[in-house]
């Protein structure tokens, strides 16, 4: 029962950590930390209009967006790892990242301008389309056998990636724009992007958490889960749908940021949390925090030059995989 007490402390603890992170991250700018910037969150009366813009229209939305995106990706990753009963699954397994990249390519190449949300809109639509394609290809009768889904995801992913490469080749001079997009990052994040991601989270997080018990049952295998009363195919459908929306919205606003969705749920499991009722919200909070700090690092370390945050998260993956290797070597 002491585990339960520990858990009771951890939730508020994490929440405090999150708020604290936002507070601290707000102070990082111009390559250094200034506590006055952090404190400005409480009182901003002494700021000049320029400073106000910088702090509340550029920096704060970026800090919050990085948190929301990191949370969405980790939440999606945790849920997918549960559905597929496979810890190596990441949120892009349904070809979403390639689809989104293709959308961005099309937007940039076509030069169509529908307002500031042109690229996110195209990316989001193509991401959803690729997920839809994967569902369709992965369906056998009325069921969604997992191996088939995975194969379909890989296939669709490769196909769209090939198209992206083609687009990049044809683009020639526009190449650099696409490269930045596929590396993932939070430049130019504003409250608009936050508003694009938030609705999906507000709906997605509770919905996914509500499937916790089913996800727990999935751990025993689909057959046992079904014998326990889980409507396996229905659950799969809903989970995949919600996760697709969540991940597509995240990728649409910030490009393809790797590893967060894969690594964070494992970190949570390392803490001894396997019950999805806690694994999911923890993954969300921890993932948000991780990406928040990764981005803070990305925009501070070489300031004023910005590093794409995807580079930092990819570096995260290395020690993680080393750890996984060690673990498997001990327990083959």
């Amino acid at each position: 029962m002491s585990i339960k007490n520990k858990k009771r402390l951890i939730y508020p603890g994490l929440l405090i950590l999150v708020l604290g992170s936002i507070f601290l991250a707000q102070g990082f700018g111009g390559g250094r930390y200034q506590i006055s910037d952090s404190l400005s969150l409480f009182s901003s009366s002494t700021l000049s209009p320029s400073e106000r813009i910088i702090l509340f229209e550029i920096r704060l939305p970026r800090v919050i967006l990085s948190f929301l995106v990191g949370g969405s990706l980790s939440l999606g990753g945790a849920a997918l790892q549960g559905v597929f009963q496979n810890p190596l699954v990441d949120p892009y397994v349904l070809g979403i990242s390639s689809g989104a990249a293709l959308g961005a390519v099309i937007a940039i190449l076509s030069g169509v301008y529908l307002g500031f949300f042109t690229i996110p809109l195209f990316a989001f639509s193509m991401a959803l389309f690729s997920a839809f394609l994967v569902f369709h290809l992965g369906k056998v009768g009325k069921k969604f056998p997992l191996e088939v889904l995975l194969l379909a995801g890989i296939g669709v992913g490769f196909f769209f990636s090939a198209l992206v490469s083609l687009g990049m080749f044809l683009a020639g001079e526009d190449l650099h724009q696409l490269i930045f997009w596929t590396m993932g990052g939070f430049w130019n994040s504003s409250w608009r992007e936050v508003k694009m991601v938030l609705p999906f989270l507000i709906v997605g997080l509770p919905v996914l958490v509500s499937f916790s018990r089913e996800l727990n049952a999935f751990l025993l295998g689909e057959k046992v889960a079904e014998s326990l009363g889980v409507e396996v195919e229905k659950v799969k459908k809903w989970l995949l749908l919600v996760v697709s929306l969540l991940v597509a919205s995240a990728v649409a606003v910030s490009g393809v940021i790797g590893f967060v969705g894969l690594v964070v749920p494992h970190l949570v499991r390392l803490l001894g949390i396997r019950d999805h009722r806690h694994l999911l919200p923890f993954s969300f909070l921890l993932g948000g925090g991780v990406l928040l700090w990764a981005d803070t690092l990305a925009r501070t370390i070489l300031n004023p030059v910005e590093l794409p945050v995807g580079i930092i998260t990819n570096l995260l993956g290395v020690p993680f995989f080393i750890y996984l290797l060690q673990k498997r070597k001990k327990n083959p």
Partner: peptide, 26 residues
């Protein structure tokens, strides 16, 4: 109806008690 299958889940990182508790699902 409850079923005990021939195959047993692999790589299951839950405690035995947690596994048995799954039985309360329905």
């Amino acid at each position: 109806v409850a079923v005990v299958f021939q195959e047993v889940p692999q790589n299951l990182d839950l405690t035995s008690q947690e596994v048995v508790t799954m039985g309360r699902f329905p």
